[in-house]
Design a protein around this nucleic acid. Structure first.
Lengths: 247, 247
DNA sequence: TCAGGCGTGAAGATCCTGTGAAAACCAGCC
DNA sequence: GGCTGGTTTTCACAGGATCTTCACGCCTGA
């Protein structure tokens, strides 16, 4: 929440916390890079606190974080202003004074689709090929042995495996793993795919997990290499979530 | 657009059409099943025209079409009403009277978010002739075997198949697949049609998929070649979307 | 029959990906 | 603060895959 109106801020904070939301309030601009690191659901912004810089800031934030829900909440403004804000990428424009309950409902509405679109079955380990991906440990295992992935490597693997069987475009991969839009010419995804492949092959030779789609991106789809073993009849191998069990 | 306020409807319709949008206006409820078939981006609804049934209708529509952007646009209502509507699944709540430009900007904002939420699970595979076109893999298959199309080839095929049965002019094809206008004398489309035909014939001989219309363009329309097999009675073969099923 | 549209094959330009390695960054520790 | 080991980002290059362009000849429709 970027706002300087202390009355509104305190009221809304109180309600939001009561509802179990996590929020942070500041009275100035936050560099877009920091916003990325915060992994927010939504951003409530009063352009008044940024003055002149509000428009470019809004545009920059919406451009870099297309997944972030952005709501502008400010003193009543002309139609042209509101339209401009919305066209720049804002998801909603609320006029103050505004009932906190409505603000919350609108924040929810903006965040809703995103959450519904990806109902992360977070906790359950994912077993696929010889791999076992355990989100609870930020690590993957082959036959009980850790594959020793770094954080980014793991997140990349998890993201690809979540969309098992589907080709993921580079931009989309970057968007989800790194959190913001990929700059033109960035090769990070390729480099990490290589690292992943190396580690996976080292621990699980005899399987291919990540396939390249030229000009598009990558697809996670475990396939046994026919090195003597009879290949499976099914074209695409089994991938399933273990039931979540509590110790 | 479900609304009975003729003034608002005509003004907004005019603007929307000027902007190249397609829209349909009715003054009563449309069964949710029909809404599904209409493949809308967004729905603008004035609950006033539905009276008592507005709330359950809103809930039903939002429940059945989680991908549809829903905006409520009605006479000023109490905060409780607005909050209720938003919590029921509406994406935005606009108070009349409302500037048509703002309404359009808000519809855009909602559609934008909707497109972002689900970039790829958009369309199920398309089955036609012996072909299965799978957008999730950027690839086409015949009897489970990949036709091994490149990106452009696939996009061309998809574009033609989407307009199955209709003749597409070269310029239009180029515009949609390449993304910009075709320069005079450019033969790219022809070349790619040839490549496509080669690959399709190799994997699915006995069928013709792409037909040439001299001086105009191409038409996608799968036909079995009568090479001994009895030709189908129907002049145009079946083309349908598989239901989207998750393993 | 004729002019222009279309199919074809192939060469060259262009773009994309895999790869190795250096540089930048970071967190914990002395 | 300065170091150290590990991680991430950036860079340049080489080999391929893909796309574009061109010239030639057959075909279409008038």
């Amino acid at each position: 929440m970027i706002d300087a109106d202390s009355g509104f801020v305190t009221v809304l904070s109180k309600r939001a916390e009561a509802a179990g939301w996590q929020l942070r309030t500041v009275a100035g601009a936050i560099p877009a890079e920091e916003l990325v690191a915060m992994k927010l659901n939504a951003l409530l912004l009063d352009p008044a606190v940024l003055g002149e810089d509000a428009w470019p800031y809004l545009e920059q934030v919406c451009g870099m974080l297309p997944e972030l829900g952005v709501l502008v909440c400010t003193e009543p403004a002309a139609v042209a202003q509101r339209v401009r804000g919305l066209r720049l990428g804002a998801d909603d424009w609320i006029a103050k004074p505004c009932h906190p309950e409505e603000a919350m409902a609108r924040i929810e509405a903006v965040s809703r689709r995103r959450r519904r679109a990806r109902p992360r079955a977070d906790v359950g380990p994912l077993v696929t090929g010889e791999l076992e991906i355990r989100p609870d440990r930020f690590q993957a295992y082959v036959g009980g042995a850790s594959v020793d992935l770094t954080r980014r490597e793991f997140e990349l693997l998890q993201m690809l495996a979540d969309a098992s069987g589907q080709v993921q475009e580079r931009g989309a991969v970057y968007q989800r793993v790194w959190g913001y839009s990929m700059a033109h010419g960035d090769r990070s995804v390729d480099v990490f795919v290589r690292k992943l492949r190396q580690k996976l092959e080292k621990h699980s030779p005899g399987w291919r997990y990540i396939h390249t789609h030229f000009g598009i991106g990558y697809r996670f789809d475990p396939e046994p290499l026919d090195g003597g073993d009879a290949p499976l009849a099914a074209p695409s191998s089994q991938t399933f979530h273990k039931p979540v069990t509590k110790a």
